[in-house]
Amino acid sequence: MSLVIAENLSKTYITGEIAIDALKGLSFEIEPASFISFVGPSGSGKTTLLNLIGCLDAPTSGTLKVSGADVSLLGRKSAADFRGKTIGFIFQDFNLLPVLTVYENVEYPLLMVQNAPAGERRSRVLSLLDSVGMAGQKDKYPDQISGGQKQRVAVARALVTKPKLVLADEPTANLDHKTAYMVIDIMKKMKDESGTTFIFSTHDQKVVGEAETIYTLEDGELAGRNSKGGNGHA
């Protein structure tokens, strides 16, 4: 079964008198263990779509199923619960907690969201830090490491709870080219290791090329779908 199923998904923002149709009836399906990118010009609706899939916002109409659950109906607390169990997040600005060390930042979701036992936390955090190549810096604070390193820590944090899906809105926008590739490579490697689906949005044409499937958004509509593998072409 598909991991994400969107049917006729729409989102309209209403600010005062003005209504903005940010998403206009999108339908698509995303399979487990895939590496997906949404591209499109600024204002095309990438962030809006990722927020919907991430259960951070509710669609105006249409249905959206993530991991079998109809997430358009979730309340505030159950949405938080669902995110904590099913989805990992990577942010454009890294968003590590400044008062926590690298190790503690990665440990945070296991402890504060999932209440995992200490032994399990330790081995999980250390192995992920190792995978993203940050084990040597585990006791540093976020302001003591570089942007690329921060994003690698963020990748580890997103994966530590073994989510089915990791969402990354412009994860490389604040990184230089070389570092951006490195982060995308790590994400890809982690996808291969863990079988977690990654969905990321980006402006960067070169980085886009790393994705298995590329969806193009234009003005709130799906304008194209390109697959590298045997998934067929749009």
């Binding site: 951070l56 607390k77 938080a80 669902f82 904590g84 169990k85 945070y108 979701p109 944090r157």
Partner: peptide, 8 residues
């Protein structure tokens, strides 16, 4: 951030 991650 912590709310998005799923902190109740």
């Amino acid at each position: 951030t912590i709310a998005a991650i799923g902190t109740l």
